[in-house]
């Protein structure tokens, strides 16, 4: 059970706020999730694994994981460049670019999906150039990756900007005065400091992409075994009145999300500890 071992802070309101938070969390998040787990447990242990490890389900995990990973990697690389450029250089339009980085947060996912499909389909602005080159985007795993890149984009940029901002110029100058080349300074001095936030941003983008649905269904093509993401498989199971199957797959996804988030929080905690120790 919930073991409350409060520390010696003299501030009031601990019981009230924690109690309320836990109650609200239980009502809105935990109780419904419990209903999901209960439904999944309607399947016997062997039944559970048979559904969870069905080839079609496995193919959907592989696709979802792969596309989410690819999207998060693209974001890690380009997000780094974007964050670096936005923090360090001044050029016309910088403020505007900086403001629209959050667009994927604010834009409804279904609308992003429709817009992306319209652009990357063979009749679209970009699709019409790529298709003749033999690179179909819409309705392929590549299209899914693009949608997932879109929705994960703000995470890397936004987690990198504050630490980039804080980097001490002196540190770089000192390194330079000691005879380090710019590349060496970057690799030895800057990268180690920026790596933890970069990892956090990457993991956040990855976790978000795993569960994405709205923006993906329009562009994915939805072919079982080929372009069917796990969220869609859950819907397909539901449409066949297979509630238990849907709940089993959902439980697997839920477990994965929880593990990744726990990892991120652990990473942040570890980073903060190190940070504090160093400061």
């Amino acid at each position: 059970m919930w073991h409350i071992g409060r520390t010696n802070s003299p501030l009031p309101g601990f019981r009230l706020t924690l109690g309320y938070s836990v109650l609200y969390l239980s009502l809105i998040v935990l109780l419904p999730l419990a209903a999901l787990l209960a439904k999944a447990s309607a399947a016997s242990w062997s039944e559970f694994w048979r559904i969870a490890l069905d080839p079609r389900a496995v193919a959907s995990y592989r696709l979802t994981l792969g596309a989410a990973l690819a999207g998060a990697l693209i974001n890690a690389v380009f997000g780094f460049v974007v964050a670096w450029t936005l923090v360090r250089y001044s050029f016309p339009g910088r403020r505007l670019l900086d403001a629209i980085v959050d667009l994927p947060f604010a834009m409804p996912t279904a609308i992003s999906g429709i817009a992306l499909t319209a652009i990357y389909a063979r009749t679209g602005w970009i699709g019409q150039w790529l298709e003749p080159l033999g690179i179909p985007v819409a309705f392929t795993p590549l299209g899914i990756t693009i949608a997932l890149t879109f929705i994960g984009l703000p995470f890397v940029v936004r987690t990198l900007q504050p630490p980039l901002q804080e980097l001490e110029v002196e540190l770089e100058q000192a390194a330079a005065s000691l005879g380090a080349s710019r590349w060496q300074t970057f690799c030895r001095v800057l990268l180690p400091t920026l790596l933890p936030p970069l990892l956090t941003g990457f993991a956040l983008a990855f976790a978000r992409a795993l569960g994405e649905y709205g923006s993906v269904v329009f562009i994915s093509g939805n072919m079982p075994m080929k372009t069917e993401i796990t969220s869609l498989l859950i819907i397909v199971k539901l449409e066949q009145y297979d509630y238990t199957g849907a709940a089993v797959i959902a439980t697997v996804m839920l477990g994965a999300s929880f593990a990744i988030l726990l990892g991120i929080n652990g990473l942040q905690w570890w980073f903060n500890q190190r940070h504090r120790a160093g400061a």
């Binding site: 959902a250 999300s257 988030l261």
Partner: peptide, 17 residues
């Protein structure tokens, strides 16, 4: 982590529950 959870859960699951 539990507070973060809805953020990574697929919207489909959020409706399903």
């Amino acid at each position: 982590t539990l507070i973060d959870l809805p953020f990574a859960v697929s919207p489909v699951i959020s409706g399903l529950i």
